[in-house]
Amino acid sequence: MISVPRARGGRAAAAADGRPVISVDAAAVSYGARTVWRDLDLEVQPGEFLAVLGPNGSGKTSLMKALLGRQPLSAGTLDVLGRPPREARRHIGYIPQQASLSAQTLLRSRDLVRFGIDGHRFGLWPRTGGVRRRVDEILEQVGASAYADVPVNLLSGGERQRVRVAQALATDPRILLCDEPLLSLDLNHQRAVTGLIDARRRSHRTAVVFVTHEINPVLDLVDRVLYLAPGGHRVGTPEEVLTSESLSALYGTRVDVVRVRGRVVVVGAPDGPDAQPHHAHPLHTSDGARS
């Protein structure tokens, strides 16, 4: 198992003080006899941007579920804001992967954002003027005011992700969990969505955990990388983790990493049920979008 526990680097991490918002110690997740990852040590500081990379099946989704309190650990400990994950969910903003919506969905953009404010409550609650104003403010912040009353299923992918970001910001989160938020977005919408996330991080020192197959659109924002692979994991700055030596050791075979005009190109990650050949595609496309 390859791991650099509690490594710190990057702009936000170097400047951060106080307790980490996420603390993982000797953690593991297993499904029956299959262990997805083990011996994971990690601390995420306020304002830090952590990118989570790895092939399909390496446990990226399991990590997100664990942080949300939806996936128990099989070993080790995990604290979010100094408490068990389930107790901290009110302070977490979550941007899920895009999902198809039924053509009959009548949920409007403002309804989705309102759920981020009061969707944790049970039963009926009054729709106060304060809540309406808060929803309008958040939609304006993300540039989605023009389609506040449009059903979500009628929005484009980029518009929908803006609304998802607004929903995640509605609770004034201390942590933003982003699960492949750039999937199916063109370059302009990728820049818009990452810009919104980074603006929140900088203005409120909100920690960002960003799961992605496409490192290049966020490479300039990333403080550290957690790379999960069948052969282990590694934590460190992009310069430390995204190297030929590091990834070759993780995969147990030759993997070449080159940098071209400030972009990362990864070639040679093995195919297989737990290691899809995504590295040879989205990481090196010229515009940062999926090929």
Results as ranks from 00 to 15, higher is better:
I2T: 10
I2Q: 11
I2E: 10
V4T: 11
R6H: 13
A7L: 02
A7D: 13
A16P: 00
G18D: 02
G18Q: 04
P20M: 12
P20T: 06
S23L: 13
A28P: 06
A28N: 02
S30Y: 02
G32M: 14
G32N: 13
W37E: 09
R38G: 07
G47D: 03
F49Q: 10
S58D: 05
T61A: 01
K65C: 03
L67W: 13
L68A: 07
L68I: 11
R70F: 14
Q71I: 09
L78W: 14
P85Q: 02
H91M: 11
G93P: 15
G93M: 11
Y94G: 10
Q97S: 11
Q98V: 14
A99P: 07
A99T: 13
S100Y: 08
S100V: 14
T105G: 09
D111P: 14
D118V: 15
R121K: 15
W125G: 04
R127S: 06
G130D: 08
G130H: 11
V131F: 05
R132T: 14
R134C: 12
G143A: 12
G143T: 13
G143Y: 07
D149K: 05
P151M: 15
L155I: 00
G157T: 01
Q161E: 08
V163A: 04
R164H: 09
V165M: 08
A168L: 12
A170S: 12
P173H: 03
P173Y: 08
R174T: 11
L176P: 11
L176K: 07
L177N: 05
E180M: 02
D186A: 01
H189N: 15
Q190Y: 01
L196E: 00
R201Q: 08
S203N: 06
N216L: 13
V218I: 05
P230D: 14
G231Y: 00
G236M: 15
P238R: 09
E239P: 03
V241E: 02
S244Y: 00
S244R: 09
S246T: 02
S246C: 05
L247M: 10
S248T: 13
S248M: 10
T253H: 09
V257C: 04
V260E: 03
R261M: 04
A269Q: 06
A269T: 11
D271H: 08
A275H: 06
L283W: 08
